[in-house]
Computed example of a mutant assay.
Amino acid sequence: MLTDLHIAVIGGDARQLEVIRKLIQLDAKTSLIGFDQLDHGFTGATKYQIDELNFSDVDAIILPVPGTNHEGQVDTIFSNEKVILTEEILASTPAHCTIYSGISNDYLNSLVQKTNRTLIQLFERDDVAIYNSVPTVEGTIMLVIQHTDFTIHGANISVLGLGRVGMSVARSFAALGANVKVGARKSEHLARISEMGLTPFHLNDLAQEITDSDICINTIPYPVLTSSVLANIPTHALVVDLASKPGGTDFRYAEKRGIKAILAPGLPGIVAPKTAGQIVANVIVTLLKEAADQREEKQ
């Protein structure tokens, strides 16, 4: 249980609703900021404007998956309130207050450094990324079906990157009967691709390997599908870029060539927000319990 812990949930999308439900279920004192237009009433949680909440006893702050923008503003789809996380707010929290976010940026990193608070990026954790790869794969399959006029079975698919998402994507499309080849740089990744029964290639050879691709799925958050690479892909091909914004694709050049290219980060929150929210909620609750236990041991 999380009894006696005060948790502030600031902004977010439908995934945060699962986090809120879990916190209330475990008896945490839950304060909601950026949820004033939410139709769903959460018995046991209290809604505030950000300037109304006293942060002096807040044990943890839970931000949306994107965290903040570069000016400190937090996405609040359930409110028209402009919510900005400031240095003053964090400085007013107890020294042990921990901030949970999916990802971070320079603003958020600077904020926690100045206030000497702890920031946990949930999407840097292997468990969260692996769990999230399941709805990511399902969303990718959905996009491919929607935006092609041929079957996945028998299609030539190039997957770029063999990280936690790339591995799941490659395995799933191969199971659907596609001819899958995977591009990577590390020798151990190339070996793993071969062990999986798929065709490996080095990313240095991408421009040559992509010439027969019907579908290209990128998972690398770095410019890999450049104009010189895209010049070699068939014009009927579909590009699905799963990397975080701005992705790894030259979308301007893809459009110029008439290639359908889709930037699709955050698919779990779009295609399966309930499941994606439960994944985040379960990990946050585990971390909150661990932090509370550690504080008790020190006292």
Rank of each mutant, 00 (worst) to 15 (best):
residue 76 T to Y: 05
residue 47 K to H: 00
residue 40 H to D: 08
residue 84 I to S: 01
residue 54 N to I: 13
residue 48 Y to E: 03
residue 44 G to S: 07
residue 34 G to E: 02
residue 51 D to N: 14
residue 79 S to F: 06
residue 80 N to H: 05
residue 82 K to L: 13
residue 66 P to S: 00
residue 61 I to T: 00
residue 45 A to V: 09
residue 70 H to I: 12
residue 53 L to R: 11
residue 35 F to G: 02
residue 87 E to Y: 11
residue 34 G to F: 01
residue 84 I to Y: 11
residue 84 I to R: 14
residue 34 G to N: 00
residue 84 I to H: 07
residue 60 A to Y: 11
residue 83 V to S: 04
residue 59 D to L: 12
residue 41 G to P: 09
residue 76 T to C: 15
residue 58 V to F: 05
residue 85 L to Y: 10
residue 40 H to N: 10
residue 77 I to V: 13
residue 76 T to W: 00
residue 73 Q to V: 12
residue 60 A to E: 03
residue 38 L to T: 08
residue 82 K to T: 10
residue 48 Y to P: 04
residue 55 F to D: 12
residue 76 T to N: 05
residue 67 G to L: 09
residue 86 T to S: 14
residue 73 Q to E: 14
residue 47 K to S: 01
residue 66 P to V: 01
residue 62 I to F: 08
residue 68 T to A: 06
residue 87 E to I: 11
residue 34 G to A: 00
residue 84 I to E: 09
residue 37 Q to M: 06
residue 37 Q to N: 11
residue 81 E to N: 13
residue 55 F to L: 15
residue 51 D to A: 13
residue 58 V to R: 01
residue 57 D to V: 13
residue 52 E to K: 11
residue 47 K to G: 00
residue 56 S to I: 11
residue 46 T to K: 12
residue 71 E to W: 10
residue 82 K to F: 08
residue 76 T to V: 09
residue 42 F to L: 01
residue 85 L to Q: 09
residue 63 L to H: 05
residue 64 P to T: 01
residue 56 S to L: 04
residue 64 P to R: 08
residue 61 I to C: 04
residue 85 L to H: 07
residue 70 H to G: 08
residue 64 P to H: 06
residue 85 L to G: 10
